[in-house]
Write a protein that binds this DNA or RNA. Structure first.
Lengths: 320, 320
DNA sequence: CCAACGTCCGGGCAAATGCTCAAAGAAGGC
DNA sequence: GCCTTCTTTGAGCATTTGCCCGGACGTTGG
């Protein structure tokens, strides 16, 4: 028999897909599904759970909630956005990653669905990673995905969130990662890295992007940039003391969305941000902590597109 | 206050959308949702049910089930199809309209998502109606939807399944319905109807279609064409005795997929079918009763695309 | 060959869900 | 204004679902 591991896992996923199909689309009960698929009731339930957790089956909302739309319009007006999507909020304060991911995935799909070859640029982070996981797999070899941020941590480990690569896997697009640390050790090293050929490839692609998608981080203890090990404690402290409130792709900015000219920003290996944003540049993120960063980024025209939730949207507008 | 009816219904749908969002996307329980939205637990459950039945929230499967893919390949090979999607089957013999509708909706969306103006042609029927209901609403005024079949029953009632119109509502596309009965009373009347200006508009559009989508019906007592009142008992009897096994858009054909030259076909008001199908012409339908009709249509090259379920697919291949 | 470990399975149970029903409430007719 | 009728509401209850756990099964290393 053929390679057992792969084949059994496929068989299992097939079964899981069937179970989920029967459950969500045909509306059968787990008991009926169990009979249909000749498994125990518990197994049917496990299969359904597997299918949802593996993203075999997806939930999409296709209804514009009045308040969300209104909020999006207000943000568009206030900050001159070309795109804004607000997902429903909740009183709880955990960030609704799943929802943002779905919205972002739809947006990404809309670019990928075009026949004409397009270049999309991606940042990193948990949210973007979740978003990419929500993108349907499709055969789109004509497109190019370029990573706007190095995929190595300081110590050379590959980032667990190599988002561009994942998206290319799912879509068959051509991948242009940035095989460098996010920040170089010093300006010399950055110059060296940027003189490499792949850097020139990436930076010329960046000029052709149809749209960019990136997370947004707040600066502070517990901020994503820090807990994921992209920057050291010392660097974080420096950023805080130079009044950084947020970062996109590592570029730190102050409360007016002005990029800081700190030592830190000078060491970033990525191509520079285009300010004010010209092509659709969409930031995504939610949570009370991120609101000041989002507001700053939008004020400074570092981004012209936003995906967030109602709660955060309200805060962003209040802060202003 | 403004028009109460519309406003309350919107408010309700908004709430339903929120409930469904929290339930399916955030994974909250109905109790939590009830608290969050300040409604009773009961109401939360009703809102979620409403949202699913109204299609506010959608379930999509994004996983190619091995057996379905294989079956699709076999059908493609056997009948020279340009497109084939097989959805999972079940032992039960009711037709899985919902699943077929979803697949068709995705296919329709893929055409509508293109920026370049496109013309799509639609038939009628329950399945197609369900499919259109699954299409996401979007703003696509550049496209044209043309109806391939009259939208009036014999006695002048508008068909409850005016599918083209519905799709245009959801997408903002331009609608070209066929404001005639499906069948004229006699050949003279058909000639008269076809000399009208709108008929020329429609038939010239038909030549430009990017793709056509239509249901397929079997001929017999209880067949869709008959129970929906498009044809009389007498007409049905005539069709049966002239060995019709199926129809697409009203055009009856025999077991080899050859269009019949019966009085009935001569009275159809729609533009003639293009045989063999040139552009993607996708038929959809499932159920044991439809299998012979599907096989015939594919043999006769009346269609070159198919959406059906596993069970029906097996039958179609067995019959051959 | 056996033991130790990890995985998978199904029974059982508590929580969550869907449904029925009777009562309250709103809309409309007289 | 009052009665009729249709809709909406929440309580109660049967069903369905999610999850824990002990046991079976399979795998690895001795």
């Amino acid at each position: 028999m053929a390679g057992r591991d792969n084949s059994t896992s496929n068989r299992k996923l097939d079964l899981a897909a069937r179970a989920a199909w029967l459950y969500y689309i045909r509306g059968r009960t787990q008991d009926e599904i169990a009979t249909e698929l000749n498994v125990s009731r518990q197994n049917a339930q496990r299969l359904i759970a597997l299918a949802t957790s593996e993203g075999l089956i997806k939930f999409r909302m296709d209804y514009p909630i009045t308040e969300c739309v209104e909020m999006a319009e207000r943000l568009k007006d206030r900050f001159g956005l070309v795109f804004c999507d607000i997902i429903p909020g909740e009183r709880r304060d955990e960030a609704p990653v799943a929802g943002i991911a779905i919205s972002a995935a739809e947006r990404i799909e809309s670019y990928l669905s075009s026949k004409a070859p397009a270049v999309l640029a991606l940042g990193t982070g948990r949210t973007l990673r979740a978003a990419v996981a929500q993108v349907s797999s499709m055969e789109r070899p004509q497109h190019k995905i370029v990573s706007l941020v190095g995929n190595l941590t300081r110590d050379g480990r590959a980032s667990p969130y190599d988002v561009a690569m994942r998206l290319c896997d799912r879509t068959g697009a051509q991948c242009y990662p940035l095989p460098t640390p996010v920040v170089a050790d010093d300006i010399e090293q950055r110059k060296l890295l940027q003189s490499q050929r792949w850097y020139k490839t990436v930076s010329s692609l960046v000029l052709q992007v149809k749209a960019s998608f990136m997370g947004i981080g707040e600066i502070g203890w517990g901020s994503p940039l820090h807990v994921d090990g992209f920057i050291t404690d010392q660097e974080l402290a420096d950023l805080v003391s130079s009044h950084a409130v947020g970062e996109m792709l590592g570029w730190a900015f102050d409360q007016d969305g002005v990029l800081l000219s700190t030592a830190f920003n000078e060491r970033l290996t990525a191509p520079p941000l285009i300010v004010p944003a010209e092509r659709p540049t969409i930031i995504m993120g939610a949570g009370a902590a991120k609101a000041p960063a989002i507001r700053a980024a939008l004020r400074g025209r570092l981004a012209n597109g936003l995906i967030t939730d109602e709660t955060t949207a309200v805060r962003v507008l209040e802060l202003d």
